[in-house]
């Protein structure tokens, strides 16, 4: 109980004084996860639309694999990305291991299946509704996909937020590929793990509160943005 209280006090103190180290870590967390989110969305959303619209041979298999990958343990992803990026690995020459870029790559791998699966479900429902009309209007495949993505944008936003939540709170994979190096790859979650290990519960808790606040703030911000185009809802 005392720990939680002192954690809160310390969190308030760190935030109130704009503690330089906290700021650096929090910003890095945001930067890594937002970068991963943008890249993952660019991959996952068109993929989800394509899976809804196109009938190809392995469509069902791809969907099943995506759904299975949603539950992929992040440590395993971390391990695989580590092996790929390590000096002797196939992408070793890029020298990306233990950099923020490596962390972004790992997070992209983790959240693409999540965003794609959630997005696919709502795009598929919308496609069922629009199918006859768009077929009748003889629109091109690209126009179809753009129409579906645009008209299900609210649901896609929710999918992206779920991806953000998973990314910002993830620790296993980025610990492995980032290495939790001070001033280089340390982010909120890895810092929490470190401070907890050292027995600095109050500081760890403080970081935890900042992490939660950050996640809530991003959610609220995006919802507020989407609500500026105030229209009917479904």
């Amino acid at each position: 109980m005392v720990d939680i209280w002192s954690g809160l006090v310390q969190a308030a103190w760190l935030v109130g004084t704009l503690d330089a180290e906290l700021l650096e870590i929090a910003l890095r967390s945001l930067k890594v996860t937002l970068s991963a989110l943008v890249i993952a969305s660019l991959i996952a959303l068109p993929l989800a639309a394509l899976l809804a619209v196109r009938r190809f041979r392995f469509r069902r298999t791809v969907i099943a694999v995506l759904n299975a990958l949603m539950g992929l343990p992040p440590v395993v992803v971390g391990l695989v990305v580590y092996v790929l990026l390590s000096r002797s690995g196939p992408l070793g020459v890029l020298g990306l291991l233990f950099t923020p870029t490596a962390m972004v790559i790992a997070q992209v791998v983790i959240i693409v299946p999540l965003i794609a699966s959630i997005a696919h479900q709502s795009i598929r429902d919308l496609w069922q509704e629009y199918h006859d009309l768009l077929i009748s209007m003889n629109v091109t495949q690209g126009q179809k996909i753009r129409t579906l993505l645009w008209d299900s944008r609210r649901a896609l936003l929710t999918a992206a937020l779920a991806g953000f939540g998973r990314g910002i709170g993830e620790v296993g994979a980025i610990m492995i590929v980032g290495g939790n190096i001070d001033h280089a790859t340390r982010v909120l979650t890895t810092a929490i793990a470190l401070e907890t290990g050292k027995g600095n519960f109050a500081l760890a808790l403080a970081l935890g509160f900042v992490l939660i606040a950050l996640a809530i703030a991003v959610n609220l911000a995006i919802h507020a943005l989407s609500r500026t185009e105030r229209e009917g809802r479904w």
Binding site: L126, E129, Y130, D132, M137, T147, D151, W234
Partner: peptide
């Protein structure tokens, strides 16, 4: 063009 029995409305 085709007007359906149950009109499809774009959202």
């Amino acid at each position: 063009c085709f007007v359906f029995q149950q009109p499809v409305m774009l959202r």
